[in-house]
Design a protein around this nucleic acid. Structure first.
Length: 271
DNA sequence: AAAAGCCCCTGGATGC
DNA sequence: TGCATCCAGGGGCTTT
């Protein structure tokens, strides 16, 4: 469910409200992808400083240590002072002096993990090999090109892998390649400089627009205040197999790449 | 080093 | 209505 825009929108929807809060209690329900790696009681009394994002991870900086939060495929956070009683899929609840932070995640691919710092082995394992942040100044056409040069796998899968650029998930990968006119099966290292530049700008503008739109809500995404996104109204190929291409009218096609579906226009994305 | 598969888990949609 | 099958926005891990 959540790609970079959804994670960023989630962050923006509660970061200011939780900053400065003191942790009063922590409850872990059914296990998520990994154990918390810390006694919940040990978090009591710590203070939330800020909330950052790296790729699709949220990093909740505490005065002592950090909370790494990942939404997986079906996770969503809520933050509020009057949340309903914990339900079946609420697997993490953190009561603070400024409200309650809750992770709801039916599929439990998500995670909440406590790390001591940025040298913590878990922090390094999860975040250490991530690629460039697409909306940061580090991400340049030149570096993007350099990253793609040494990959001969299909461009769609290189984008998804997250070791060149982070945050582009299954929806935005198809959308970006459509906007750039590149066939998803094209080997990353064979894309010409001009095309790489176009793809670079497509990725940036797409993600920026999606954040502006509050993210994409396909079935159940909502931010920490419960608001849904509306970028799905601007998607052009994702989940539109058989429908006419918005540019040329050809039928949108669907293929499988690495057990994920990919959508593209066979005419606009010739190669 | 890079690429390809497998798997974690639940729920909704579809088909018989 | 019941049951089987497939699919879903991610990504770490193991094997080639």
């Amino acid at each position: 469910m959540p790609e970079l825009p959804e994670v960023e929108v989630t962050r923006l929807s509660f970061a200011d409200r939780i900053a400065g809060a003191h942790i009063l209690s922590v409850r872990m329900g059914k296990s998520l992808r990994w154990p918390l790696q810390c006694d919940p009681a040990a978090l009591v009394g710590r203070q939330v400083i800020t909330v950052r994002r790296r790729g699709k991870y949220l990093i909740v900086d505490l005065n002592v240590g950090h909370l790494l939060v990942h939404l997986g495929m079906s996770g969503s956070l809520s933050f509020g002072t009057e949340l309903p009683p914990a339900g079946r899929h609420d697997h993490f609840d953190m009561q603070t002096s400024q409200g309650q932070l809750r992770l709801n995640d039916p599929r439990r691919f998500g995670a909440v993990v406590v790390v001591s710092g940025e040298e913590d082995p878990t922090f390094l394992k999860l975040l250490g090999k991530l690629g460039m942040e697409p909306l940061s100044d580090d991400f340049t056409v030149q570096r993007f090109q350099l990253g793609l040069k040494r990959r001969k796998a299909p461009i769609k899968q290189v984008l998804l892998a997250g070791d060149v650029v982070v945050g582009v998930g299954n929806i935005y990968a198809s959308e970006a390649l459509f906007r750039a006119g590149i066939r998803p099966t094209r080997s990353a290292n064979t894309i010409g400089q001009q095309r790489v530049a176009i793809l670079y700008h497509a990725i940036r503008s797409l993600l920026e627009q999606a954040v502006q739109a509050g993210g994409t809500t396909l079935r159940d995404f909502s931010n920490a205040q419960g608001a849904t996104g509306h970028f799905q109204l601007q998607t052009q190929v994702y989940a539109r197999e058989g429908q006419p291409c918005p540019v040329c009218g050809s039928r949108i096609r669907a293929i499988r790449q690495g057990q994920r579906s990919t959508f593209f226009c066979p005419v606009c994305q010739k190669s």
